[in-house]
Simulated scan of single mutants.
Amino acid sequence: MFFASDNSGPVHPKIMQRMMEANSGYAMPYGKDEIMEEVREGIRKTFEAPNAAVYLVATGTAANSLALACYTQPWQTIFCAQYSHIEEDECNAPEFYAGGAKLTLIPTDNKMTPEGLAAAIARRPADNVHMAQAGPVSITQVTEFGSVHSLQELRALTAIAKDAGLPVHLDGARFANAAVALDCTAAEMTWKSGVDVVSFGGTKNGCMGVEAVVFFDEAEAWEFELRRKRGAHLFSKHRYLSAQMAGYLQDDLWREMARSANAACARLAAGLRANGAEMIHEPQANMIFARFPRSVHQQLHASGAKYYVLDGDVALVDGDEMLAARLVCDWSMTDALIDQFLSHF
C-alpha cells in the first residue's frame, strides 16, 4: 500500500526491456547515440512540432532549471504560483542556474490565475532600474495539489505572458497525467496553447530516471546544450536515457501508464469519499489531498501503508481529529491494494 509518491513505483517492463537492449555493444556518447535520433523524431511527432529541439536529462529539477535559465537574465524574475514545483521542491535550483534571478510568487491556494499573473507583471515595470525585471512565466501542470489547468486556463495565462512579451515554461513532471485528464494532445497542451518550452516528465510515470526538455523555438537550443554541459547534466552513457524515453514513447506507453495511474486515483478518491474523507482539493489526475480521522491514520500506519501526513501527530490520543494526507497513485497501483487501503476505514 505505497501511496507516498509516483517517484517510488517500479519501472515499466517495456522500458526496462529497451534499456536491456541498449546494454549491448558500444554506442556513441553524449547524446550522439542512434536511439536519441529515434527519441527526437518520436517527440517531434508526439508534439506535432517537426522543428522542435529535444534534449534529455535525468531529473526534473535539471529539466526545469536549465530550461528556465535559457530564458532568464540574472536581473530578472521568474513568475510562478505560490505553491509551484519550482518554489516548493527544487532547493533554489532555478535561481542557481539562472545566475541568481529570483522567483516572484503569485498568491493562490492552488492554480495560478490570469488576474494574479497580470498583477504580478504590472508590479515589475521595465523602466525601474531598482527592481527585478520581468522574466519568464512557469506553470506547473499537474499542480502541486493534484489539479489540472484546463486548456482554456493555460491559454488565458499564456496570453497574459505574451502581451507582456514574456516566454512561458511548462513544468510537466506529470505531463502525461494532465494530458490524459484533459483528453488532449501534447501539442494542444503546449505550443498550441502558447508554451515555449516544456519539461516532458518520465520519471514519475514509469521510467527509471529521464525527462525531456522540448524547445518549440530552436533559437534556445545551443544555449541549452552549453548550460546542460556546464551544469554537469550531460550524460556520457546517454543511451540509457535515450532507451528509457524511446520505450516511453513507443505505442504511446506514456499515455497508457498515465491512464492507469489516473484511474487508480479516481477509484481511491471514490472510496475515500464513500468512507467520509474530506477532499481538500478536487483530485483531477493521480494525486489526492484529503482529511480523515487520526484513528484511521493509526490503523493504516500500523498496517504498513506509506503516504504523507501533512499536519498533526499521528501518535496522539485524540482519534477523531481530522489530519490531512497526500496520496499518490502510480501506473502500477492495483485495485487490490486500493481496496486493502480502504478496508481500514
Rank of each mutant, 00 (worst) to 15 (best):
L337S: 12
A101S: 05
A243C: 08
E218H: 06
A187M: 03
L117W: 01
N7Q: 08
W75F: 15
R326S: 14
G135T: 01
M189G: 08
W75H: 15
Q244D: 07
S193W: 05
L253V: 10
D311L: 12
M322I: 09
A63S: 11
A173H: 12
H85F: 07
A62Y: 07
V142L: 03
K204D: 11
D251E: 14
H297Q: 09
C329M: 09
R273E: 14
Y97L: 10
G206V: 06
H281W: 15
E38K: 13
I106V: 10
V296Y: 08
A49F: 07
V317I: 14
A161T: 07
A186L: 13
Y308R: 14
R239W: 10
A67M: 04
A27S: 15
R273A: 14
S193K: 03
T104K: 02
G202C: 09
M28T: 07
S332R: 10
T334Y: 06
D6A: 15
L234F: 07
A4H: 07
A258S: 14
W331N: 07
K111G: 00
N177M: 13
Q250T: 13
V198L: 07
R18I: 01
F175V: 03
L151Y: 04
A266C: 00
S84A: 15
S242R: 13
V317C: 08
L327I: 13
A67D: 01
